[in-house]
Amino acid sequence: MAATTKKTKSNMDDTRDPIVVIDGVDIIYRVFSSGKLANRTNIGNKKMERKLKIREVHAVKNVSFTVYRGETVGIIGTNGSGKSSLLRAIAGLTQVQNGAIYAAARPVLLGVGAVLLPNLSGEKNIILGGLAMGFSKSAMHENTASITEFAGLEDFIDLPMRTYSSGMSARLRFAIATSRNHDILIIDEALSVGDQQFRKRSEARMREMREKAGTVFLVSHSLDSILDTCSRVIWLEKGVLMMDGDPKEVCAAYNDYTSVKPAAK
């Protein structure tokens, strides 16, 4: 267990400025086998527990790490390895079972699928999004053009957001969210639906954010994208932290793992 002690030591570096501290986090989903989510109201119900077996899904197992100011952290792992669960917990959207997550500012999560207000035009979504983030209305009227341009949606900005393709809506959400500097931005595959051109632009913006001392978490299945943008990579497998360190090393190890596994079985 020499590795563990070494890990905890690097988790508490007083010479650097920590932004997010993940302290022994467990995330467990309790689901009745019928699919009904177990919660406080029905978990003590013995009759129900006997009738419908509770399945425990241990999505994240005792994960600890510290992220410092200015880092861009890539998180990789196969499907169902707990990446999204961990990121949602960092954003405060999923409860942790054990341990705790500490952050210097409120993290902002960009996920796939979420549409802001589907019946409103892209332009109005930009204005509302900005107002919700604390911009003034006049500032938003000024910013709208540059956000639209960044998202590459000049021709569609007056259409309701429900008519957008998944790529278009992801681009717009990224453009809105990054129009303001966030201390902590979490991107959960939100960019995977964007095209090549947008990928380049968004990677540039993430680097920009990092230079302004923001911290970015990025989940992606594109190792190229991770290698291009991240300064550090964390590899999760079945909820366990497998490796944490230099992007090239971790990605290489992950590549070996995914290519060897089918043959071993």
Partner: peptide, 17 residues
């Protein structure tokens, strides 16, 4: 020093509170 103490020392707040 535990991680919780370390976080507190650097002024981090618990997420979701």
């Amino acid at each position: 020093m535990t991680l919780a103490e370390y976080a507190q020392k650097h002024g981090l707040k618990r997420v979701g509170a």
